[in-house]
Write a protein that binds this DNA or RNA. Structure first.
Lengths: 156, 156
DNA sequence: GGGATACTGTTAGAAGTCAAACGGTTTCGG
DNA sequence: CCGAAACCGTTTGACTTCTAACAGTATCCC
């Protein structure tokens, strides 16, 4: 449904670029809320799932800073989310010999089991939502979004 | 830049639909942060700007619930943002004769002046970011995103 | 009329986000 | 070798968001 209908706007958005931006943001929100509803069934928040999911697929040790770079959040945010996950016993901070500043973050057995339980439903949801797009269409969409990010980041 | 490079992933995302979803969310975040940086120069948060902007273009009186529907946030969120804006004198809650439950929300002179000051920079930013897209491309992108939202919302 | 129902705005509490500041550690350069 | 600079994780404080519950009003229907 168009944003004009969806938001029941008195007067339609006249600027097509503005409408495009609002559509991107709105779509991201809708997708995100879909995820939130799923994760919630497993007692997780979106941020918490993102951490577990990222940790599952890492191929080398990650510090909290690494995790922050990967998830594009600040170190402060990582600290707060890890505290919650550690309380639940899903994740562990491991001290590192030879560098007392950092921790390595690892999934516990319980954390791995949980992410393995959620992940198939997560992937399934994504495929349902994008079922009407073939691979080429997806790649075209991705390329467009990359171009937008490129222009947004450049000219800081 | 591709997400694989941008996030410096050890192993690339293999699922193109997953990559598409991550791209949408990431692009929305980048656009949003661009806005945050702009609004900040005027002492506003994104949520606060969104309220001012919506109020500027309303054509009839809006209650707080109306505003929530328009911005797709809960009534509780509206209350909290309006409290801040009212403290700054940018917005006013007006009691309504004949219905003691509701307020009508209006811009003050100061609020209108401020939004008029920010809006051109906001629009300019959007146009810079999407300058490489012609109108037809924008409309195609919008149509794609609408289809995704459609599928996401259906099958609640 | 009067009770049940629905709606409105607020509050409380949980969670995430960021920026900024701080204290410990490394690292680097002179 | 030692001070300066960089880095790392944490804390604090501000802000947004949500859900859930609440109290006050309106509305609807019998």
């Amino acid at each position: 449904m168009s944003l004009n209908k969806e938001l029941d706007l008195d007067q339609p958005i006249e600027d097509v670029r503005h409408e495009a931006v609002l559509n991107i943001v709105r779509t991201a929100t809708v997708l995100s809320m879909k995820g939130v509803a799923l994760f919630r069934r497993f007692g997780l928040t979106e941020a918490q799932f993102n951490v577990l999911f990222a940790l599952k697929y890492k191929t080398r040790d990650w510090t909290q800073s690494d995790l922050g770079r990967r998830l594009v959040v600040t170190r402060a945010s990582v600290t707060s989310v890890l505290d919650k996950l550690e309380d639940k016993g899903l994740v562990k901070r491991v001290t590192v010999h030879g560098n007392r500043r950092i921790y390595h973050v690892i999934l516990t057995r319980k954390g791995l089991d949980l992410v393995n339980q959620v992940e198939p439903l997560y992937r399934e949801g994504i495929h349902r939502v994008l079922a009407c797009f073939d691979d080429a269409q997806c790649r075209r969409l991705i390329a467009q979004l990359e171009r937008i990010r490129e222009r947004t980041s450049r000219e800081d």
